[in-house]
Design a binder for these strands. Structure first.
Lengths: 109, 109
DNA sequence: AATCTATATCGTAATATTGCGATATACAAT
DNA sequence: ATTGTATATCGCAATATTACGATATAGATT
């Protein structure tokens, strides 16, 4: 075996896991941070910002896109990427919801 | 190759990636949700809550512990697990910070 | 001491991720 | 039409993750 038993878990659990997986690599964190910083569509210069070869960056962008965290629109012969803010916020809200009972102090540990 | 080029990225980027990786599996999401729900140390019954064998659950717990998201304290012959709220909040804050410029509407896409 | 219970670790198979050179695609510019 | 530029995909090697049976460990119970 080795494959994940995704079927047992709820839709929300799998969704959150997919988003977290998309952010589970520092290169993808760096991409998201950069897109958040410039807060606009960015064509082309993402590869220059990372210490990785172009095919590798392309693959990371694809993973972020598949997870729904970024969007890419074709602009001439380039592709413009930006955050999918709606999706990012959804993920953030679910994650924050995970910690809701934080106001109740843990009884031990 | 295939190994991550972790050295290039900042400490914060790697930390966030590690926390995200810890949450990148639905079983680990389920564990965190369960601990958040009961909001207490839980001895023993985590294995029963998941559709996975005991060694597998033990491994997932170890990963969450290594990432600092949960704590485990030995209690007799059992181990009690609970969320590391401080660490969870830290991760949440960094992640939320990632979206700070959300108030500025994207100019395209 | 022998046994039970709870959890961890080892070993291993199946699968997934990471990275990149080579190559393909697609539009732009000459 | 040829060439250049930007990005994607293919194919492969190295490594990591996932899962679990078997086994080890450690405290509790008898």
């Amino acid at each position: 075996m080795g494959a994940s038993k995704l079927d047992f878990f709820t839709k929300q659990q799998n969704e959150l896991a997919i988003a977290a997986k998309a952010l589970s690599h520092p290169a993808r964190i760096a991409i998201v941070q950069y897109l958040a910083k410039v807060n606009a569509c960015v064509c082309g210069d993402i590869v220059d910002k990372l210490p990785l070869a172009q095919p590798t960056v392309s693959q990371h962008l694809k993973e972020l896109k598949n997870a729904g965290l970024i969007k890419g629109t074709i602009e001439g012969n380039a592709v413009c990427y930006c955050l999918d803010l709606k999706s990012m916020k959804k993920f953030r809200d679910i994650f924050n919801g995970l910690l809701e009972p934080e106001n109740v102090k843990s009884s031990c540990c």
